[in-house]
């Protein structure tokens, strides 16, 4: 019995495991309600510069070498950051499109997204706050 009590105590002390998710978010005032994965790819890979409803999109990215950024592009297009950078170099310098604006931290990115209803970005579910609307949700990783 004593052993069982010790075991139960130990289990209760283990940190609660919360599944972390990656979320694609817009400002709550955005006219966009939800996007498919293909539509998220279209925006983040520069295929279109507008949302499917025709509204101009302002895409935000996280700065280089952030863990969330690596996971986002792995889940979105199965590419490393170096591959994504080379891809954007092709689009930018062929004059096709301009890469997403980089925010230094998730907090800075959230601030930017809240400021305009045309913005879109990605965050970890742990950073989700009021004022944001989730338009696409990646499965837990």
């Amino acid at each position: 019995m004593k052993c069982l009590m010790v075991l139960l105590t130990l289990i209760s002390l283990l940190p609660t495991v919360v599944a972390e998710e990656l979320l694609v978010v817009v400002s709550e005032s955005s006219r966009v309600e939800s996007l498919t994965k293909g539509e998220v790819v279209d925006l983040f890979m520069g295929r279109y510069v507008t949302f499917p409803n025709g509204d101009k999109a302002k895409v935000f990215d996280l700065a280089s070498k952030s863990r969330t950024k690596g996971q986002f592009y792995k889940l979105l297009v199965n590419r490393t950051e170096a591959q994504v950078n080379a891809y954007w170099a092709r689009l930018l310098f062929s004059g096709r499109s301009v890469p997403p604006e980089e925010a230094d931290s998730p907090e800075a990115l959230i601030t930017q997204i809240k400021q305009t209803d045309l913005a879109i970005g990605y965050i970890s579910s742990q950073d989700l706050t009021e004022g944001l609307k989730v338009v696409y949700r990646f499965e837990a990783f």
Partner: peptide, 10 residues
């Protein structure tokens, strides 16, 4: 053709 000058891109 459109990015032949951009060595980093290929």
């Amino acid at each position: 053709s459109e990015y032949r000058n951009v060595g980093y891109a290929y």
